[in-house]
Write a protein that binds this DNA or RNA. Structure first.
Length: 105
DNA sequence: GTCGTGACTAGCC
DNA sequence: CGGCTAGCCACGA
């Protein structure tokens, strides 16, 4: 019986996001699935959007399932820049070698 | 307790 | 390719 008390959901999201290896990325639905809510991709985005650990959690490593960047609190441009710093190629807000940089938990 | 919103996804045209 | 709809979940007012 999984009792999601308080904001354990959001907490789990940040926890998983912090576990993303460098140079790799994860998807919203993927994270949602890991924490036990495969259909809570939206909630995941919400948690990251309001996450108090903005500079601590590599939220820029979280993208859509289609390989699209999605959004980022502060500017998608910055997100792309950060991803490129991680050796991840991004073109027009979309990851090129998405399948190769996708972290497989 | 209900309503609206959002960094999502999949399907349809 | 782009736009719209429906379903899903969590949070704040």
């Amino acid at each position: 019986m999984s009792k999601y008390r308080e904001m354990e959901f959001s907490h789990a999201v940040w926890s998983v996001t912090k576990k993303i290896p460098k140079g790799k990325v994860a998807t919203y639905s993927g994270i949602a699935r890991i924490i036990g809510r495969p259909k809570a991709a939206r909630a995941v985005g919400n948690a990251l959007h309001v996450n108090p650990f903005a500079p601590v959690v590599p939220c820029h490593r979280v993208v859509k399932k289609s390989g699209q960047i999605g959004g980022f609190a502060g500017g998608v441009k910055k997100k792309i820049k950060l991803l490129k710093k991680e050796k991840i190629k991004v073109i027009k807000g979309k990851i090129v070698n998405f399948s190769k940089v996708l972290a497989n938990f």
